[in-house]
Write a protein that binds this DNA or RNA. Structure first.
Lengths: 126, 126
DNA sequence: TCAAGTATGGCTAAATTCAGCCGTATCAGA
DNA sequence: TCTGATACGGCTGAATTTAGCCATACTTGA
């Protein structure tokens, strides 16, 4: 078995019946939505994205940027100048994702006062 | 360390800055959206839900139903008759989730023709 | 009594995602 | 030449989620 770039060959089938599964397949990943949002906001370069999301490891950001690229959400442009320069931007498909993200984000904000304590409870002790 | 019901005590902090993280925190889970949708459609009892989602193990369905309950999305009613009977239904909060789910599902369906081949590619071989 | 339906959870291992260390390469400026 | 900036990915192990086997307890009907 040969892997590229720490990518994992899926052994269990992916669920794609419902459109929402497609949405989750694209957006699930610790920093993916943040990356989409940053790029949408004009933050284009890898180092710049990492400065904006300092809690993420550069390693994982690269991995997820690669996945978003593979899923057609963003596009990577490599400027073959010296020194090398890279920029990401949303594709047309990525642009269509923005309103959907805004909808779910508004839902979360509207119910944050209820959700936050419930999520943080997570009953760790007995 | 004592756990209940195979629940896992989280060791890494949860991200809740953005409202979308709240949405994902609630909906991420292999069968959660399906469960929400089935319950929304009037399928209320555990065995009935399992028949509708035969590819899911009853074990995992129970776990995710418990999490949805803990997050205030559904409510569990136990009828103390013989034999015991259980019914789930959406809470008021759960009801508000439906339009958000519909939005993302519509996004997925609208772009399925592009997304599906890209997701299935997942370059497993070199 | 035996099967089959209801409901539930303990347990182990597999699958998957994430964290973090370290190494590579190129280029600019002190 | 040393430092720091750009960019990238191999590798290991921890954290987390999911799969699947098996056991429990109750009730109804054959």
């Amino acid at each position: 078995m040969t892997y590229i770039c720490t990518m994992y060959e899926k052994k269990l089938p992916v669920q794609l019946e419902c459109g929402l599964h497609l949405f989750l397949e694209v957006t699930s990943g610790k920093w993916k939505v943040d990356l989409i949002w940053c790029i949408h906001s004009g933050i284009k370069r890898p180092a710049e994205l990492h400065r904006r999301l300092p809690k993420a490891s550069r390693r994982l950001l690269n991995t997820q940027l690669k996945q978003l690229t593979d899923h057609g959400i963003i596009i990577k442009t490599i400027f073959e100048q010296r020194p090398q320069k890279v920029e990401y931007q949303l594709t047309a498909l990525g642009d269509t994702l923005i309103p959907a993200i805004e909808t779910t984000a508004r839902w979360g904000e509207a119910h944050r006062h209820i959700l936050e304590p419930l999520i943080l409870k997570q009953s760790p002790s007995i």
